[in-house]
Amino acid sequence: MKRKEILIIAMLFLIGGFSVQAQKYATKTGVIRFYSEAPAENIEAFNHQVNSAIDLNSGDFVFRVLMKGFQFEKALMQEHFNENYVESHKYPNATFVGKVSNLSDIDLSKNGTYDAEVSGNMTIKGVTKEVIEKGVFEVKDGLINGKSTFYIQLADYDIKIPRTVVKNISETVEINVDVSLSLLNN
């Protein structure tokens, strides 16, 4: 599916899913950490300007990440990540469009800590995969903090590691998500 089509579907999904009365929570400063542990070196990168939103009525949950926003310790790693691996010039965004599957078991309008299951479509480098991941929502005084740690296989998203650097980059990378969502006042 082309990127434009995915974006249009995502937007229709959102417009359809977010009713007028919906309690929408969102952030533009979500954090995503990327971590690769390999024999030769460990690679870590952070993106601090991640868009995310959740609709408490429907459980719709979305992310949008700009790939060029990942900051690496080494400039060379950042260059390789953008130019060779995720090809951010062709695929500038990564997205997740899904739902909190166990919304009926949790009440995100009340203070507390809730285990959540999130399922949906993750798109990286133009490749969309269905994913189901676990996470935790902590609700405190009107703020919803969502955290999740999961792993992705780079090959699933058509990210190829050249043989020459196979000891430098893990085939499976750890992703940490940390978002503090506040009520949207439209």
């Binding site: 533009k28 300007q49 949008r64 790939m67 060029k68 926003g69 900051q71 965004n93």
Partner: peptide, 14 residues
Amino acid sequence: GFVTGYNETDVVME
């Protein structure tokens, strides 16, 4: 600043 892209709501720079 350095432009990282557009995320359907904002143009983001670092």
